[in-house]
Design a protein around this nucleic acid. Structure first.
Lengths: 214, 214
DNA sequence: GGATGTGAACTCTTTCACAGCG
DNA sequence: CGCTGTGAAAGAGTTCACATCC
């Protein structure tokens, strides 16, 4: 099945597998079966095998997958085989937390710059060693090999910030502002609205309290 | 189409519509067509109509939807028609940012308590007026009409925290820890792994830079 | 006229069952 | 013998086109 359109849902699951594989590799397991990986990450084993089958034969029948090798392959597919440099726009509460967030490194992602419009913040050094720069100078990211942006600004400032980022050559944006944003087709945006995720939780909670388990 | 199984994807979109409707209602628009709402939130108009059709006839042909009434209906469907009280577990960088996050109020969600295990943090009052309590006393949420939890603890502490929350009667959990967590069927978990979202961005970025627009 | 609401067609995803290989 | 890889079936979700109603 090597040459095929890859389902978006498969792409969404690849980072999950990658995370699981890296934890497993750290434990010193050389091989892992689709079943073990399935138990570990919470996906069915046949789903995992099907997902991998879109890209080639990564496993060995009767044995399983070489954890290190498979992790490397997934990184290549996700284009995480080179370090990706990202810029943060909007250093408020959420932005600061993202700067300090240790989880990005696992995927080879690195926040190397931060911008804000607040004069009181500009010039400050964050715990990560990143100095907050004036958003008016956002065009400088063009010369700094930065392809990704994280935007953590208020909703009303989001579209404007994005427009500037696109002009500065940014190719992918992770948007925390709770709104739709428009970009040229060549730019990919993933919007992550935290409050919205919490908001759909009550729907799944039955009103009357039953008490069965597992 | 009133009596049917509701697609999960529809439930995922309802908060998007709700947000759009509330902004629209604030602008003073009494009615909105599926087309206008579509333009505003970035979903197709037929998708919107189909989604609403699962729940009943909310609109008026030739006119559109009554913004206020529709917002009320969606809130009822999502069970957001009562204020939902939530507890935060883990007051690190991300946890603090979530406490200060203004977006929850829009959906009638309210973080009324925060817990941590760090003795240096316990007793501190956060900017929101919430006092950090000792996680050892998490069982007290049982008597405080709290049904939702947000967990922002390290991966290794997540499952333990969740087990305690479930024992304390929590019904829905928004999990920021990058791992699978196991809960009884009656409890709903939504995991939101921030680094993972950023990690799938490079996949969509072409290696060679093309430059076509919109 | 101008919008909604919806069966039917279509497309995308998941699940299954098992052939194939180490 | 065990585990992968995959065609084929089943299931979900999206798109369309248009009947329907204000």
């Amino acid at each position: 099945m090597r040459y095929h359109k890859i389902p978006d849902e498969t792409v969404r699951r690849l980072p999950v597998y990658l995370r699981g594989l890296m934890v497993s590799a750290n434990q010193g397991d050389r091989y892992i079966s689709s079943q073990s990986l399935a138990d570990f990450v919470g996906v069915n084993s046949w789903q995992i095998r099907k997902d991998f089958s879109y890209f080639g034969d990564f496993g060995t029948r009767g044995v399983g997958y070489d954890t290190e090798k498979l992790a490397r392959e997934i990184k290549k597919i996700l284009r995480l085989d080179v370090i990706r440099r990202a810029v943060l726009v909007g250093v408020g509460d959420l932005g600061s937390a993202l700067l300090a967030y240790p989880g990005f490194g696992v995927y080879g992602l690195d926040i190397v710059a931060a911008f804000d419009i607040d004069p009181k913040k500009i010039g400050q050094t964050m715990n990560h060693g990143v100095i907050i720069e004036d958003f008016a100078r956002i065009d400088t990211v063009k010369e700094r090999d930065i392809s990704l942006a994280i935007i953590a600004v208020p909703r009303t400032a989001a579209q404007e910030a994005v427009d500037q980022l696109v002009a500065a050559g940014i190719k992918g944006i992770l948007n925390f502002a709770p709104c739709k944003i428009s970009v040229p087709k060549r730019v990919k945006v993933i919007t992550l609205d935290i409050a919205m995720e919490l908001a759909r939780l009550p729907y799944y909670i039955p009103r009357a309290g039953r008490t069965d388990d597992s």
